[in-house]
Amino acid sequence: MIVASPKSVTELKNLIARHGKVLFVGCGTCVTVCLAGGEREVSIASYATRMARKIEGKPLELTQVTIERQCENEFIKDLADEVAKAEAIVSFGCGAGVQAIAERFPGKPVYAGLNTQFLGILEKQAVWTEKCLGCGDCMLAQYGGVCPVTRCAKRLLNGPCGGSTEEHCEVDADRPCAWQLIYARLRSIDQLDRLDSIVPPKDWRPAWHSGARKIVRKEHQV
């Protein structure tokens, strides 16, 4: 899922400093699961921002609503009535959600209420870790299902770098060495032979290096 983290109350307050009537929009999908932009987080942010503005002597009229998914027009269109009443919108979706809302309502300022971080998983309660950069040409088969593009600090495709200590990455001792994990994983599935082949330099063209990507699937088009 997409993992995001909340902006501080001060940041939120500054984002909407010029507005008096604002709509806070939560998203019921990824950012609800990562406890950053769901109904409850939007509610807490609303209380805090309203109080901060009241103390400044600039009371804020704030409405909050959470839709199922901010990255789909099907759900965004339900916002139309509330959007019409507000001067500006703060979207607590991921960056895609913020932009989808901005596209749908061209005349309204739309601000991001979260910092979108990465594609990752819930490691344990309240701890999320990054697992994938969305490079567009997945190489996980070669590495036993552990992504060196994302999880090796040096993005080594033919690792390890030799700097790891006690299974920890030399760049950050809190992080496991991705290459240690790759080795352990290949050994446990009996595919260590994969390490005998040298992986050529990665072709980054399918990745983000040539601008925003687009996928068209003719078989599903109507």
Binding site: I44, Y47, R50, M51, K54
Partner: peptide
């Protein structure tokens, strides 16, 4: 006690 309960009282 939810965080909202506390915030609501302060508000």
């Amino acid at each position: 006690i939810e965080m909202e309960h506390i915030l609501a009282a302060f508000e």
